[in-house]
Simulated assay, not measured.
Amino acid sequence: MNNGAKMIFPKALNLDNLIFRIGEVSKMLNVSTRQLRYWEQKGYIQSMRNKCGESRVFDMKNFMCINLMKYYLNQGFTLAKSHEFAKQNLKNMKLLRNFMTNSFQGIENVNDRPAINLGYFDKEQTSILYGFIDNEDSVSYKVIKK
């Protein structure tokens, strides 16, 4: 099992603190600055001004929203529908991140295989749920008594 030190998962890096300038977002996601300003004008994304008030900057949430909107636009959806789908995906990502933050207990060696400890499986805290990566496309789970 583990050595007693709990590994920290997503809280180690607060993604909410990452910010990107409009030009960086444009280059990374291949969306023109003109499009980004238009999407902001329509209320689909929100920028912040940098400390000097000179240029637009975007937080990680808006960066992800832009990325998702671009994906759905490329799939042929309208801008409004792309934004709707992006918002739902962002809610799902937040839920998944909260789940992983609260369930991840560390990586341990179980039967000579790396296993992800997902915490107690039962209220009595007698069994632990482990996840295994069997290959790149396959995941399995096993409940092991403490």
Results as ranks from 00 to 15, higher is better:
Phe121Asp: 15
Leu95Trp: 05
Asn74Glu: 13
Phe58Asp: 02
Glu24Phe: 03
Tyr44Ile: 02
Ala80Asn: 06
Gln41Leu: 10
Ser103Ala: 15
Asn3Val: 06
Tyr120Met: 14
Lys42Leu: 05
Ser82Gln: 07
Phe63Ile: 00
Asn98Gln: 13
Met48Ile: 02
Cys65Ala: 09
Arg113Met: 10
Ile107Cys: 13
Ile107Tyr: 09
Phe9Cys: 12
Ser82Thr: 07
Leu95Phe: 01
Ile45Lys: 14
Leu68Cys: 11
Val110Trp: 00
Met1Gln: 12
Ser140Ala: 08
Lys11Ser: 13
Ser55Arg: 14
Arg97Val: 07
Asn74Arg: 09
Gln88Cys: 11
Gly53Phe: 03
Gly4Gln: 09
Ser55Trp: 05
Lys146Phe: 11
Asp122Thr: 03
Tyr141Cys: 09
Tyr120Leu: 11
Tyr130Ala: 08
Val31Leu: 01
Ile128Glu: 03
Phe104Trp: 04
Gln46Asp: 07
Arg49Asn: 09
Ser32Asn: 10
Ser26Glu: 00
Phe99Glu: 11
Asn89Gly: 04
Tyr71Asn: 11
Val25Ile: 10
Thr33Tyr: 00
Thr101Asn: 13
Gly4Phe: 01
Phe20Asn: 03
Phe77Asn: 15
Ser140Thr: 14
Tyr38Lys: 14
Val139Ala: 13
Leu90Met: 15
Phe104Lys: 07
Gln35Ala: 13
Cys52Phe: 04
Gln35Trp: 03
Asn92Ile: 08
Leu96Thr: 03
Arg21Ser: 06
Ile8Gln: 15
Val139Gln: 14
Arg21Ala: 08
Ala5Ser: 15
Tyr72Gly: 02
Asp122Trp: 01
Val31Gly: 04
Val31Thr: 06
Leu18Ile: 02
Phe99Asn: 13
Asn98Val: 05
Gln125Glu: 13
Asn117Cys: 07
Pro114Gln: 12
Met69Leu: 05
Asn109Glu: 13
Leu68Lys: 12
Arg49Asp: 08
Leu13Pro: 05
Gln105Phe: 08
Leu36His: 00
Phe20Ser: 00
Met48Arg: 07
Pro114Ile: 02
Gly119Lys: 06
Met100Gln: 14
Met93Tyr: 12
Asp122Gln: 02
Asn92Lys: 10
Lys6Trp: 00
Gly43Glu: 10
Met28Thr: 05
Tyr130Thr: 08
Tyr141Gln: 10
Arg49Thr: 02
Thr78Leu: 07
Asn30Ile: 08
Met28Gln: 10
Met60Glu: 05
Phe85Asp: 15
Lys94Ala: 11
Thr126Pro: 00
Arg34Ala: 12
Asn14Gly: 10
Ile66Thr: 03
Val143Gln: 12
Glu54Leu: 05
Gln41Thr: 11
Lys11Leu: 09
Lys61Asp: 15
Met100Val: 11
Val143Ser: 14
Lys145Asp: 15
Val57Lys: 10
Asn2Gly: 15
Trp39Ala: 03
His83Gly: 01
Ile66Leu: 07
Arg97Asp: 14
Asn89Tyr: 06
Ser32Cys: 06
Phe63Thr: 01
Leu73Ala: 05
Phe63Pro: 01
Asn50Ser: 09
Lys61Val: 04
Val57Trp: 05
Asn92His: 13
Lys11Pro: 02
Lys11Thr: 14
Gln46Cys: 08
Tyr120Val: 08
Leu15Trp: 04
Ser103Leu: 14
Gln105Gly: 15
Asp137Leu: 08
Met64His: 06
Ser47Lys: 04
Asn14Thr: 07
